[in-house]
Design a protein around this nucleic acid. Structure first.
Lengths: 338, 338
DNA sequence: CTGAAAGCGCTTACAG
DNA sequence: CTGAAAGCGCTTACAG
C-alpha cells in the first residue's frame, strides 16, 4: 500500500503537506494550488488509500465499541439469517450494548479460508453461524486470538447457543400420533448440519415409538418449486401418506399448489407441519395456513449477543452451552383437536 | 479506554510484559506465573480491550481491502436488502474486488444520528440505502470525508443508482389497458421514498391517458395479513374493480386467501400485478402465480459496487447517475393475451 | 524472567 | 505557504 510518505517523496513536499491536501484542507491552510494539483495527481496515479487504522489511531483516540465479526453462509439460509440479525440488533438496542456488527460471508465448509488472522485481529469477538462439519473440525483443531461463539452448533471447546433440535423433531411426531396418523412422510433438503439429522431422527423415533410407520423420506432442492414437485411425487408414490413434516417452511409453501390442484381439503385426512426457519409472515394467511414448529431465531440471536458480551468482559469465562426452547403454532394444515 | 500502559503502571511491570501476557505468550517467553496472574487480574478488573486500530497498524502493516459502509434501514424492507446484499457479494466475487462490506443499520429519517464522523473515517466509501427525505436533506446540507453513493435515490450531489420508477408504474397501466380493463385499484403501504410516489403517479397517469378510471387507492400495513384484509375491503367497497396493482409483493401474497375464499377465478375478469421487491421464489408457485414487475435489485447492487470502486479509485470522479431497467414477468394473475 | 526502544501510518500544534 | 516533530496504542527484535 502506498503511504503518505511515498507520495511526499515523489512530490518533493513534506508528509504534512500531503496529509493536509488529502484532507481537503488546502484552502484553510493556504496550500498553493500548484502543490495541491501535483500532490492530488500523484496520489491518484499511485492509487493512494488512507490507512484507516492509522487514521483511527490518531483521530479517534480511544474506540467507541466492540467489533463483532459474524461469519455466515450466504446461501438459501439467508432468510433465517435475517431474523437472526434483527434479533442481534434488537438486543444491542435493548441492552444498550456498545457493539458493532460486521458481516463476513463464507462458503459452507470453507470457514478456514475466510478466517484470516488479520481479520480476526481486527475484531473483539467472533460469532460463527451455519458451520458445516468440516468447519467445526477446523475450529476444534486450532487456536484463535479472539473469543468465538457458535450459533446453533454443539461444541465442547466453544460456547454455543442451540435450538432444541430434539423437540423440533419430536413435537410433530407426538402431534401426528395423537391425531391417530399412521403413515408419516418427511420432505427435506440435504442436511446442512447435524441438528437437521437430529430433528429427523427424533421425528422417526417418535413415530416408531408411537406405533406409526417408519417415515418415508423425500429429499429436494431448497426452492418452493422443488418442494412442490417433490410433494406431488410423494403423494403419487405413497397415496397412503396421512401426515407430512416439512423440514423447511419454503418447501411447505411451495407444496400448497399441489394440495390445491389435487383438491386435498384441510382439515381432512392429510395433515402437515413445517419447521419454520424463515421470516415470512405469509404462513398465517396462505391456504391452508401452516402449522409450524417456530424456530426461536431472535431468542437465539439475543442469547448469542449477551453471551458474547460476557465472554469479552469476563476473563476466564468458561465454555457454556445454552439450549433455547421452541414453540409449536397450530394452524389449518394441522389443526388442534379439541 | 484503558490502555496497556495503564495496566503496566498498575501492575508495576513494563508495557512489554503486559502485551506479552495478554497475547498468550507467557509460556514461550517464560513470564512468571505470578506476574501473569497479577496482570490478567488487573486487565480484567480495569476492563481492558485491545485497541484494534493500534493492533492493526502494528501487525497488519498494510491493509488488505477497502472497507465499504452500507447504511440500511432495518425494517420490513429487510427482504429487499437481502437480494441487494447478495448482489454486492456476487459482484465482489465476479470482479475480484478487494471489498469488505460493513453493515450499519439506521432508523429511517435518522441517518444523521448514525453517520458519526469517526464511523465515516473508519471506512473508504459509503453506500446509503433507503434514505428518507429528511436523510437526503441532511446529506445535501453537509460535507463528508468519504465518497458517498446513493441506492435508489435521486441526487444532484451524490452519484446514485436507481431503478426505472417511471416504467415500474407505467408498465402495469399499459398492460391493464391493453387487456381492456377500466376500473383500476392500487394497494400500497405508506410511501417510504419519492420513487414509490413516482411509481404510483405514473400508474395513475397511464390509466387516465388510456381512458381508464382514476385508480382507487387503498393503503395498508406492510404485512401479508393487512394486504389480505385491505383487499377484502377494496372488493366490498368497489366490486367493479377489474385490475389491481400491488405496490409490494407481500401484500399480493397476503391477498391470495381472499381470492380463494371469494372463489375469484384466474384467469377471469379480475387481474393483478405486483411490484416484486422480495427474495421469495414463492411467487411462481402460489395460486394464482403472480405477474410481477421484477425489481432488478442484484443489477442495482452490482452497479453500486462497481461505481464505488471507480469512485474510490478515480480522483475527481464526477457525480453520475445510472438508471437500471426493470423486467415484467407475466404469470397467472395477469396472463399475457395471445 | 523482564524492559527500553523503535516503529507501524497518520494528524496536528507549533514554528518559521 | 510549508515542514520537523510529537504522539495515538500497540508489538517485537534486541539487550540484559
Amino acid at each position: 500500500m502506498v503511504t503518505i510518505k511515498e507520495i511526499a517523496r515523489e512530490a518533493n513536499v513534506s508528509p504534512t503537506t500531503v496529509s493536509l491536501i488529502l484532507n481537503h484542507k488546502s484552502k484553510e491552510r493556504k496550500i498553493s494550488p500548484l502543490t495541491e494539483q501535483k500532490v492530488l495527481e500523484i496520489a491518484a496515479r499511485m492509487g493512494y488509500l488512507p490507512n484507516l487504522q492509522a487514521v483511527g489511531l490518531k483521530k479517534g483516540g480511544g474506540q467507541f465499541s466492540y467489533r463483532i465479526l459474524v461469519f455466515w453462509v450466504a446461501d438459501t439460509r439467508a432468510h433465517t439469517m435475517l431474523r437472526f440479525f434483527r434479533g442481534i440488533e434488537a438486543t444491542i438496542e435493548e441492552d444498550s450494548l456498545p457493539f458493532e456488527i460486521l458481516l463476513q460471508p463464507y462458503k459452507a465448509g470453507a470457514l478456514q479460508t475466510a478466517m484470516k488472522q488479520e481479520l480476526l485481529l481486527s475484531c473483539h469477538g467472533v460469532l460463527v453461524c451455519n458451520a458445516a462439519e468440516a468447519d467445526l473440525e477446523y475450529l476444534d483443531a486450532n487456536q484463535f486470538p479472539r473469543p468465538i461463539i457458535l450459533y446453533n452448533r454443539y461444541s465442547k471447546k466453544y460456547s454455543n447457543v442451540v435450538m432444541d433440535d430434539r423437540s423440533i423433531g419430536s413435537i410433530p411426531g407426538e402431534i401426528f400420533a395423537s391425531h391417530g396418523k399412521k403413515h408419516p412422510a418427511v420432505i427435506t433438503t440435504l442436511p446442512t448440519f447435524s441438528g437437521m439429522s437430529i430433528r429427523r431422527n427424533l421425528f422417526a423415533y417418535t413415530c416408531r415409538s408411537r406405533g406409526m410407520d417408519e417415515p418415508v423420506v423425500y429429499c429436494c432442492q431448497p426452492t418452493g418449486r422443488s418442494g412442490c414437485e417433490t410433494t406431488l411425487q410423494l403423494l403419487e408414490n405413497h397415496p397412503e401418506t396421512d401426515c407430512i413434516l416439512y423440514m423447511r417452511e419454503g418447501l411447505a409453501l411451495g407444496s400448497l399448489r399441489v394440495f390445491s390442484e389435487l383438491r386435498i381439503p384441510f382439515p381432512g385426512k392429510l395433515e402437515f407441519i413445517a419447521i419454520a426457519d424463515s421470516a415470512l409472515d405469509f404462513s398465517e394467511v396462505c391456504i391452508p395456513a401452516l402449522s409450524v414448529v417456530y424456530l426461536p431465531l431472535e431468542a437465539v440471536a439475543s442469547e448469542c449477543t449477551r453471551m458474547m458480551y460476557r465472554q469479552i468482559h469476563t476473563a476466564g469465562y468458561k465454555v457454556t452451552s445454552k439450549v433455547i426452547p421452541v414453540t409449536y403454532i397450530p394452524r389449518e394444515s394441522c389443526p388442534d383437536k379439541g
